[in-house]
Write a protein that binds this DNA or RNA. Structure first.
Lengths: 341, 341
DNA sequence: CTGAAAGCGCTTACAG
DNA sequence: CTGAAAGCGCTTACAG
């Protein structure tokens, strides 16, 4: 474990100056400061006292205003909190800009916070140069959507197969005109659902009857717009798949406002929250994404890594592990066979 | 700021032994260890490096399994996170058993975590002996329900007046048989609503027509039970006040299942979430508790305290400050005048 | 089980 | 803007 003396030697300066940079004091030549910072990064420097505190897990949350208004994110957190607290760990919530992210920064963050490990809640695609892979070697778990093919420990939802399953179920009920309502496909999960949907429609020979409405956000308002756009008398789909719960709630509200009945006029399958869908009317048939469970699993996975490389931050990393959680179909009352015409 | 030398002197031992206790090493006589721990507590000892880290706020969360499934708690957190993150602070989530809580422990926790300040999300009544009040002198804000009369910085919801306002509104609409559905009144907020409700009914001379159904939890299932219990043909109230959103959602679901119509058969006012109530059918008239805003206000209040006693943890505490957030009535479509009979 | 003393990692007042 | 050196807070190997 590097000390400021090591950093000083590498950067060709004195411990005093390293200390100044470490504490953000002014009055250090920019070039000297840069060399010191580079050395710190390279050697994964961390003040000794940070290394001593290991009673917390760092949780990196996409940095967006109101991100904790998302039921998806808070249910992951809920699962993590229940498990972590029971084991005596606290959670440190920290925003993280997924747009500018690389392994080096990621590692720095964990080291900086003196955490025992790190969770990264992933929503959108993140670019991480593979050449940095070996910089990870710290306990970590990415939760949510697939992050990158190799080198990371991940908990994923099987959105692709869920897209297939939802579509197949509707096809089996006799539906042919089916629409998918989703968030912008820059979001990995929604894109996977879309892919599963389209492939299944194509495979069944109904590609031309597949519609797709997508939005730049996944708020209830967009769900309302989707209903307005899709449920006009002409060309109305007989079934709709909605890729998250907020969209679904808006869609339901607008459908009722339009005087239409679910499932008589249109069948609906919605993704995400099993719990609240029990309370809607009608109770929604759902692809029940195991969001809370993903948080619990993530803690288990992190602990497994901690056991392997104990004795501090070993740079030998354990084999990357990926758990893909299936998304079961829960049939309730919002889906019926297509009325014979 | 006390060092281990001070502790050693006070406890009549050596720094080496203090260090052993500090690090939980075995092989210290229990009596010596006790004296050292007492001295640490008394002098608010904190290792130096903890004092140096001040980029986080500690958030104490009632320790209960699944606590983050509560929309109430996560919306407070959401407001806190948005504000704190913008200012460069992280949030440390830590469970806290409100049943066994005193100022001394509270102070120890803040000190232990090396946080710049502390939020305490309050749900139930907490007993804190007033004699310990002056031990607080650290930046802190209690959020939610009234904690104790003096000595603490608090953000409260004005549940009492909200209870009055909801009741008065229903009375003005001509309702006389009114029921309140609430969580166990050991919860401060629900108790205040109950008090406002009962006083108003009594004041108007309809005490005998006031009903109260309470539950040991506030899950949707309890809301369902409430509907089953209250909405039998005989003695059915013409209006119901529901003291939180989960109860309300369950109540709505069961009402529909029973084939009853809101507001034709029964008017409903629900507390808490304005957002989702827009999506229910009918849109619910609500007492719109400013939950998210309370998180934002809490951060402001904490920062104000930090400005006052900077230079570490001053034991001179600023004057306790209490902000009571009003709960506005938002009229939507679940309340109508009592049908003339 | 405990203390005196050496040591470690970091900081800082001072000199240049 | 920087370094040599003293100092601070804590830890630990050793002796008893």
């Amino acid at each position: 474990m590097a000390t400021i003396y090591d950093i000083a030697r590498t950067a060709g300066t004195s411990p005093a100056t390293v200390s100044r940079v470490l504490n953000g004091r002014t009055g250090v030549k920019t070039d000297t400061a840069r060399r010191i910072r580079e050395a710190m990064e390279e050697m994964n420097f961390q003040p000794r006292w940070k290394a001593m505190e290991r009673n917390r897990f760092l949780v990196l949350i996409p940095s967006a205003q109101g991100i904790l208004n998302s039921g998806y994110v808070t249910r992951i957190l809920s699962g993590m909190a229940d498990s972590a607290f029971r084991m005596g760990f606290n959670l440190v919530l920290r925003p993280f800009d997924t747009a500018h992210c690389n392994y080096r920064e990621l590692r720095q963050l964990i080291v900086q916070e003196g955490a025992a490990g790190c969770f990264l809640i992933s929503l959108n695609d993140i670019y991480l140069p593979t050449s940095d892979i070996n910089l990870i070697g710290l306990p970590h778990v990415v939760v949510g959507h697939k992050f990158q093919d190799d080198g990371l420990h991940q908990i994923l939802f099987d959105d692709y197969h869920a897209g297939i399953d939802a579509t197949k179920y509707l096809l089996a009920l006799g539906h042919r005109n089916i629409a998918l309502v989703s968030f912008d496909i820059s979001d990995r999960g929604h894109r996977d659902i879309h892919r599963g949907f389209m492939e299944t429609m194509r495979g069944a020979g109904f590609e031309s009857q597949a519609q797709h409405v997508q939005f730049r956000d996944s708020l209830p308002e967009s769900g309302r717009s989707a209903a307005l756009r899709l449920l006009q008398p002409r060309e109305r789909p007989t079934a709709v798949i909605i890729s998250n719960e907020d969209l679904a709630n808006g869609f339901l509200a607008e459908t009722r406002a339009m005087g239409l009945d679910i499932p008589r006029d249109v069948s609906v399958i919605a993704f995400e929250n099993a719990y609240s869908f029990d309370m809607t009317s009608p109770a929604l048939t759902a692809m029940q994404t195991p969001v809370y469970a993903s948080g619990v699993e993530a803690v288990k996975m992190l602990c497994a890594q901690m056991k392997q490389d104990h004795g501090g931050y070993a740079s030998t990393h354990s084999d990357p592990n990926t758990i893909t959680l299936p998304i079961p179909l829960i049939v309730r009352h919002s889906t019926i066979a297509r009325p014979q015409t």
